[in-house]
Each structure stands twice: as structure tokens, then as C-alpha cells.
Amino acid sequence: MNDNIVEIDNLSFGYKNRLLHKGINMKFPRGKVVAIMGGSGSGKTTLLRLIGGQLRPVGGEVRVTGQVVHKQNRKGLQALRRKMGMLFQQGALFTDLSVYENVAFPIREHTDLPESMIRDLVMMKLNAVGLRGARDLQATELSGGMARRVALARAVALDPSIVMYDEPFAGLDPISMAVTCNLIRRLNDALGATSIIVTHDVQEVFAFADYVYFVADGVVAAEGAPEELRKSVLPFVHQFVHGEVDGPVPFHYAAPDYRQDILRSPNV
């Protein structure tokens, strides 16, 4: 049995004729917390969708537990997805349900457990994210950080073996951020799951991730354990890790020469 639960093999993906990914290779070993980092618009979230089978690659393949995701039929895809939990950027809680029902949703959909057992499971998951007391609130009444935690409880409701996090720290205050970091690590170790975190918050992730991939220009620009990367002399990694304004990742979007652009009269 292969030790990597998810493998991305020479993956290409793009919209129309613009390729977003140009041959990406990644490996996600079981039980590890792996982060995918990169600037905004580098296609990190798209990678998660490719793993989840919501998008089809243009070339290459994604294998989850050895099975090629985009070659599955509907049943096979459903089976693979049941092994995954995903935390969406804004939580994506169902706004017409209460906190309790949100966490109960995947359990109700996929099992025939009696109500008492569902209750126990939901309480357990909500307790793990520290929101057992908020179970009767409506999803719309939660703050951003709380919503994210409820969504996390929902994502792990069926004890998935892969948990994917899409920008779990975006827009959180420092306390919520620390709470979320802590939770991800604890849940990962408690579930024995593999976590894939897409983010651009360097310091938080470096503190607890086992392995980090940097994506830039559609390829893996650098990879390694956090300590190695912190010492890395690659200009791109250096710029990213230390948050410098200009470097290999230019401040400017590709544009013609500034001087020429300004001098050009508007009606040409």
C-alpha cells in the first residue's frame, strides 16, 4: 500500500487557452499536515477542487487512495468524496439550518443512525471546536470565526481521512487564528487524517505544518519542511516568507511600459 493518500501527477489545468497549472507534482503522505502556499490567483483553491473532482484536469491526474479522480463515475466519485472533508473559505454553512443541523447534515445524508446517536456525534464534534453551547443558534447569527469552526466540525463530522482547508485563516482576528491553527493540528492528529491547507499566511502555517509546497506560475516553485524553507535562499521563497513587496513576484500585473502607456493618447 502506498504511503501517500493523495498524489498529484504532472497535473495541468486551465480555462480556455490560459493554463493555470502547468505540470504540478505533489504528494500528501498519510497523517501529515501539508500546506500549499502561493500568491493570490496562483490556483491554490483550484487545486483543492481538482482533488475533490469538481473540476476536470486538462492533463495529468490526481489520485486519491490510488484511484484517479477524474476517471471515476458518479458512484466512484461519491465514494471518494465521502473520504474527504472540506472547509470552505467563508465556511459555506447552510444558512437555512441551525448550527446543530449543519453539523448533523452529512451524518443524516449518509447514515441511517438513530437520532440519539446523531445527537451524540454532533455534540462531540461541536465540543471539539468549542461551540457546543452555540448549537441552537442559526448559521446566520455566527461571527466569521465561529462560522469557520462550525464548518470545521461539519467537515469532520464523518471522520474523513482527508481534510482540505481553503484559506482557513482569511479574515480572522489573531485569537481566532491561533484557535483555528490549534484546532487543525489537534483534529488532524486525533482523526489520524491528512490535512491539506491552502493559504498565504506564512507565519501561522510554518508554525504547525509538516511540509509546505509553494506554487507559482503554475508549477511547484519550492517545497520542503518549514525550517528548510525559512532558510531557503531561493529568491521567490525568500520574498514570500519575508513578505517583501517586490522580487521575483512582481508588484505590477503584466503591463506595457509605464512611460509609453501614459504618453499614449486615449483615442488611439
Partner: peptide, 8 residues
Amino acid sequence: SAMEMMAV
């Protein structure tokens, strides 16, 4: 999307 990812 979340629903889809939950295999629903």
C-alpha cells in the same frame, strides 16, 4: 459546492 463535496 460544499454540498457536492459532502457527496450530496
